[in-house]
Amino acid sequence: MYRKISIIILLFFTLLCSGCEMNNLNNNKNTTKLATSDIKQLIGITYNDIEKIYGSPEKSTYYINKNNLSKIQKNYISLRSFNYHSIIKAYYKTTVEDKYIILWYKNNKVIKACFDEDDIISKDSFYSEVNNTDFKIDYFSSSSSLNNKYNLEEYKTSINDSIFSFNKKHNLSCPKIAVNFSSSNKVLYFYHINKSKNEYDNDCLFIISNNNKITYINTINSSKICETILEYIK
C-alpha cells in the first residue's frame, strides 16, 4: 500500500514539473506517457486518487446487480454512489493517437489496467460476473447538449422515432447517460439541456426507448437522474 501511495506522489510531482494542472490532465498535451508496466502499478488505487492524477474519465460503464443497491441511501444519489456496488470500466484520455488508459474498478479500487481493448475482459475471472449483471449505465462526459430553443411538446414529436433519428435531428453525438437492462429491450436516455433563464434550468430530457422506438419523453431535474434510474429497476 505504501508503495502504491508513493507511486501516486511520484506521478503527481512529475506532472507538476511538466507544467500540468490537476484539473486539466486529461486534456493537456504534456500528459506523461506511461508504459504498460507503469499503469499496472495503479491496481489497488482508489477511484478518487486516480481522479486526482487523470481527472474524470471520458466514458464510464457501470455494471450493476440490483440486489447490490439495497444499502444505497435513497435521499440523494449520484453515479459516485454506485462505486462500491458495481464493476466500473473507465476510459481516461491520453495524447497518444487517441488511445485511452482503461481501468476496471471493483469496490472502488482498480483491479485491472490496460491501454487498449486487446487485453479483453474475457481473459479474466470476472468475465461472467460482468456479463450477468442486471443492468449497465454508460456515462459520457463529453456528450453534446440539447438546444433550449425547443419546448417539451416539440421534443415529444419524436415519440415513435428511433433514438438514432432523434440524435440526428438535434445534432447530438450521444446522451449524457444511457441505461441498458439485461432482461428487456428497454433503454433509458438522459440528455443535458443547455442552461438559460427559462423553464429548463437544471433540467435534462428523459427518454425511454423500447425495441429501438421512443415511447416516452419528459424533462426531469438533473439531480434526480440516478433516483429515476432506480425507479425503473424491477
Rank of each mutant, 00 (worst) to 15 (best):
Y189S: 04
Y189M: 03
Y189V: 04
Y232A: 01
D38R: 00
S37C: 02
S173G: 10
K156F: 09
N185Q: 10
D138G: 00
I39F: 01
S145Q: 14
N167W: 00
Y200W: 14
I87N: 07
I214V: 13
Y155M: 14
L16Q: 13
A35S: 13
S6E: 12
I9R: 11
I45C: 02
N210C: 01
L103F: 14
S86F: 09
C226R: 00
H192E: 14
N75A: 03
I225M: 10
Y92W: 08
S182V: 07
N218V: 02
I208T: 12
S37V: 08
D49V: 14
L10C: 06
N132D: 03
L205C: 05
E117G: 04
N23A: 06
N107K: 13
I45W: 00
Y105N: 05
K59N: 13
R80E: 09
S81P: 04
N68L: 08
D118H: 09
G44W: 01
N24D: 08
D116A: 05
K71T: 11
Y200R: 08
N48F: 02
Y189P: 10
N30A: 09
S165A: 13
K89C: 10
N210E: 15
R3E: 12
D201N: 09
D119W: 02
Y92K: 08
S145W: 13
Y84P: 00
C226F: 00
K52Q: 15
I5Q: 11
K106T: 04
K136D: 08
K123R: 12
Y92R: 06
E51P: 03
Y216I: 09
L103K: 10
K59H: 12
K89L: 12
I64C: 15
N211K: 08
F135P: 05
I50K: 08
I120M: 03
K156E: 15
N67E: 13
I43C: 03
I159P: 01
I8K: 10
Y232V: 00
D38T: 03
L34T: 11
L79R: 11
N65Q: 01
S165D: 14
N185Y: 08
F166N: 13
E153N: 15
